[in-house]
């Protein structure tokens, strides 16, 4: 039973690390600001979730588990909010989405009045 938990924990940690890696890659390679935020924000939330889940399965004491769950809750609250704040600040500062080469502006489906 415990080896099964360990395997599951290993799998979670690996998936989390892989997602973090893809996030970093996306942050470096994506053409415009919003795509980069997307790469960071989405993978960060999911990857942190996986890493914390992996650690949760690995620990066998109640106190660290409670703390990990609290950290997970905090990340689930704060990380998307931080991404949102960045994106909103960028929009207010006049940053607009660009095309794949990062040169031209993309025409938006609808513009705010």
């Amino acid at each position: 039973m415990s080896t099964l938990w360990l395997w599951a924990s290993d799998a979670c940690l690996l998936i989390g690390s892989f997602l973090l890696l893809t996030g970093a890659l996306g942050f470096l390679r994506f053409p415009d600001f919003y795509a980069r935020i997307h790469a960071c924000g989405v993978t960060e939330t999911l990857a942190t979730g996986f890493v914390l889940l992996g650690l949760l399965l690995r620990s066998d004491d109640a106190m660290p588990q409670v703390k990990l769950v609290l950290i997970l809750l905090f990340v689930l609250f704060s990380s998307p909010t931080a991404s949102h704040a960045l994106a909103k600040a960028a929009w207010n500062a006049g940053v607009r989405p660009r095309d794949n080469s990062g040169k031209r502006r993309v025409s938006l489906p609808h513009t705010d009045p």
Partner: peptide, 15 residues
């Protein structure tokens, strides 16, 4: 001069 930061305000009120 800007729209209020609704989402930020709600989350920060929680936190």
């Amino acid at each position: 001069h800007l729209a209020p930061h609704t989402i930020l305000q709600v989350v920060s009120k929680l936190l």
